[in-house]
Design a protein around this nucleic acid. Structure first.
Lengths: 166, 166
DNA sequence: GCGTTGACTGATACTTTGTCTCAATATAGC
DNA sequence: GCTATATTGAGACAAAGTATCAGTCAACGC
């Protein structure tokens, strides 16, 4: 079953009507880089209303199909969510990301939380740095946001922040 | 030397002119909760221009006196920055935060980053859960956010985030 | 097939959180 | 006091959503 088919299944299970605009948003999101902005979807689908795009994205977020990703600069992007708890390495130069499945935060900070009288329930971690290509001087791109309007899809592997259950 | 005096000193060192509006913003920020929004400062200082408030906050961010904090929902807050790398425990019920100076992230994830070909430069971690008081059933506050206009300090479920040097 | 009902849509206005511009004003240095 | 420069406040503008509303569409019962 393709990813898209799975998503369709998931939405049908939630009794969400799969209308043409919704499917268009879904397809555009699927065709976009792993991380995409609402604006990209809008650009891709000029005939679909802005409100519909945002509503559909929200729907997908609610269905846990995509997740909202807050970047360093406060911008919001969307990303296909992945099952399983993981974090990301984010390249500050080109925006590329790699997943880290290793976590260890609960073990690391659980004791500190206990001492502070907190019941730890979750955490949120992102690691920033520079990827091999950018370190080597290739792959330098004006940071993703630079002019926002380039339409250039970010390289896949992308960023995200994940709110993970501790 | 008081915190405010230290800040004034810091700004003077940077040749920043300490005009009355700037001092007013500084004082309002100092009087506010540890974490505050630009809106709160505005409400506090109706006679100071909005642009001046934002400019002054930016100035303080540039001077590393306060830091911008991106919340779960993408909203921006400001927070007095502390010397030294630390993270926060955030109570989802009442919004209270506690610092954790212990970090260990670089040690924990450094190897994973290296394997992925990343040069780790910083990270961003928030731990959330419930504080002792909320666990005990006291201290529960109706989510303060409701209409944002209450002037009350932080709302519940906030997640503060800090980008720390790794 | 028809009518009803409720979900969905697109247009558009509005909100929030800033940033930019510009003329007026304050300040520092001489 | 004069001049150059920094700062200010008002207000326009922008990005990224959200809310509202009338119109449309699809499902469902008859």
């Amino acid at each position: 079953m393709s990813q898209l088919a799975q998503v369709v299944q998931l939405l049908e299970d939630r009794n969400v009507r799969l209308t043409p605009p919704r499917l268009a948003v879904l397809a555009a999101a699927a065709a976009a880089a792993e991380r995409f902005s609402a604006e990209e979807i809008q650009r891709e689908l000029p005939r679909v209303g802005r409100a519909t795009i945002f509503r559909t994205l929200k729907l997908l977020v609610d269905a846990d199909i995509i997740c909202r990703v807050i970047q360093d600069d406060g911008r919001l992007l969307y990303r296909w969510s992945r099952r399983g708890h993981h974090h990301h390495l984010v390249c500050r130069t080109c925006g590329a990301t790699r997943d880290i499945s290793q976590c260890g935060i609960p073990e690391l900070l659980g004791e500190a939380a206990r001492v502070a009288g907190f019941a730890m329930e979750g955490h949120w971690l992102e690691v920033y740095g520079r990827c091999q290509r950018c370190l080597a001087g290739e792959g330098e791109r004006p940071a993703l946001d630079a002019k926002r309007a380039t339409g250039a899809a970010p390289r896949s592997e992308e960023v995200t922040s994940v709110t993970g259950a501790a």
